[in-house]
């Protein structure tokens, strides 16, 4: 039987994910050798590197047994996977933000239950946030540079992820509300979690044992 196949996200939490997997004893060295491959085979494990938002897709379908992905992506997609462990790394906040000079206007619109236009990469999160408050929003889905939307009048405010707030500050955007906080999570395919429980459980345990030193 092949080793566990692990989906690793590109980008911000790539290094954190590698550290966590390394702490659990997986041979992640191959991933550092050649940054252009998509599929890496090593002794006892296989790694695929994908966009963060694709990690739950690979795992839900069983194309990867386990994966590492931010809670923000899980909140948005709500995939049918087992969420095993909070790695505690890659912390960031999902926030509602608006340009400094528009904050009061947006605040008033929301409190009067007027429809506000929201630019976001997380349409489901944004929709649930406004519905949860009993407020109305017209959600505009974007795939990058969400901060641009309120600056050019595409939206009045944004729902986006921020770690340090730098990008928001640079674009003169102000946080109006914290929606949720996110950290990296270890997820597993439902079938792999059962059929290969011994391996998966050993991995989680090793992460738990050694991960705290890393994190």
């Amino acid at each position: 039987m092949r080793g566990l196949r692990v989906a690793v996200p590109k980008g911000a939490i790539f290094e954190d994910a590698l550290a966590a997997l390394e702490a659990a004893g997986l041979p992640v060295g191959v991933l550092r050798e050649d940054g252009r491959k998509l599929l890496y085979r090593a002794e006892g494990a296989e790694f695929i590197v994908s966009r963060p938002s694709d990690v739950p897709v690979f795992v839900e379908h069983g194309a990867a047994d386990i994966g590492i992905v931010g809670k923000d992506v899980l909140d948005e997609q709500r995939p049918n996977v087992v969420e095993l462990r909070d790695l505690g790394t890659g912390a960031c906040q999902m926030v509602l933000a608006a340009p400094r000079n528009k904050v009061e206007e947006v605040q008033r619109a929301i409190s009067h239950a007027e429809v506000v236009r929201v630019g976001t990469k997380f349409p489901n999160v944004a929709r649930r946030y406004f519905e949860g408050m009993g407020r109305q929003a017209e959600v505009i889905e974007l795939h990058g540079s969400v901060e641009l939307a309120p600056l050019v009048g595409l939206a009045e405010c944004i729902v986006d992820l921020t770690a340090t707030g730098t990008t928001l500050r640079e674009n003169d955007l102000v946080v109006m509300d914290d929606i949720s906080s996110s950290t990296a999570r270890l997820i597993a395919n439902r079938g792999s979690y059962r059929l290969r429980h011994r391996e998966v459980a050993a991995l989680v345990e090793a992460m738990q044992r050694n991960g705290n030193r890393v994190g």
Partner: peptide, 11 residues
């Protein structure tokens, strides 16, 4: 109960 088959990610 749920039945899983090897090679298939779904029940």
């Amino acid at each position: 109960y749920e039945v899983y088959a090897s090679g298939l990610g779904f029940t």
